[in-house]
Design a protein around this nucleic acid. Sequence first.
DNA 1: AGACAATGCGAGCCATAGCTCACAAATTGA
DNA 2: TCAATTTGTGAGCTATGGCTCGCATTGTCT
Lengths: 210, 210
Amino acid sequence: MARTLPTIPRKSASQQRSKATVEALLDATARVLVRDGYDRASTNRIAAKAGVSVGSLYQYFPNKEALVAALVARHNREMLQLIRDALKKVASLDLATAMREMVKATLDAHLVDPALHRIFADQVPRMGQLAKIEALKEETFALIRAYLEDRRKEIAVRDLDAATSILATTVEALTHEFVINKPNALDRDRDRFVNEVTRLVAGYLTPGRA
Amino acid sequence: MARTLPTIPRKSASQQRSKATVEALLDATARVLVRDGYDRASTNRIAAKAGVSVGSLYQYFPNKEALVAALVARHNREMLQLIRDALKKVASLDLATAMREMVKATLDAHLVDPALHRIFADQVPRMGQLAKIEALKEETFALIRAYLEDRRKEIAVRDLDAATSILATTVEALTHEFVINKPNALDRDRDRFVNEVTRLVAGYLTPGRA
DNA sequence: AGACAATGCGAGCCATAGCTCACAAATTGA
DNA sequence: TCAATTTGTGAGCTATGGCTCGCATTGTCT
């Protein structure tokens, strides 16, 4: 056999292998969590689903908590990226439009993997490392707060932190509830939802105009 | 010893005894949940704390899930009673005042036992019988919806169900967040909070007036 | 008093799940 | 080629916690 191009170095094959293992474990964790729930998602089951042995699992994650926490982190990164992009795009637009885009982005974020997100919300205990489920909220808070700061003059609110908190919490809670209770919503339903939520928060920030 | 009044019948002493046992178990469950968290709250520990044996525990509750579910139900009953009373009082008042009272009642409800409520929210998995944690929301929904129906003409919303859902979810989420993040809030802080939330929801229902 | 029922007891069974460890296979570098 | 290193394996150890069951105590009724 002609061994073609032996000089081209494969870039760290071993690293590649282990990376794939880690990815497989995270993917399997997500699938098993969704299928069986948090309690029934044993590390043995997850490893089996990933096609690796438990031993390998514990080579990359010190315990079950850390494994799930890593998955949460990955999921939060994906969601947060959408929020970030949306707020970047509307930085220069008016408040009502910006709010609308933020609500839409939040909805999109929740549609990344609703089933998994629901498991996180309903079954994964927020304690220890898992408390970082909340990290998403904190980062979102920072993004929104930065935007509001920019537009401070246009909004009718004294305490910016309080307003940010109200905004972030409200939009998050409403979006979560909507995705859970209307899993089969059509585009039309989603538009209506976005309309209502936008009206709610925009009216709060700028009470003047209807 | 003079056995005084032997003729007066104790009303069903045995029933009384078992009722006390059940109460002790529920109280102990609450305390152990708050102290140790859901996972560490073993039935043995709870029985010990209640001063009864595990066997007695399983005489009144088929399993751990049912035990915690019973506690959740008791807690929800207490909270819901406050909401119910508040809405009954304001049935004839104007919308803004009614909203304010509802927000205040929701806050009071969350202050019944914040630590326990937090455990329910953060650690108790919403599955199986425990899903009834959500029952509180549904009943609150019904109460609010009935009120809004009464005042339909005054509010600027097409879909009453949607409005109710937005209202209930928003107030609940904001109140929850407030109680969690500001556990040592003063009356002054609470008033401010109630003001803001009232403005938010009242502005949503009646966009006309600021 | 005596019998029957209701309630309480708690050592221990059993299933499960997190995690370890001694070993094997793959990969790399020289 | 061959040792050294990285990566993978999975049977099984250990701890834990839900739950049972045979027995004891308390209470009731006649």
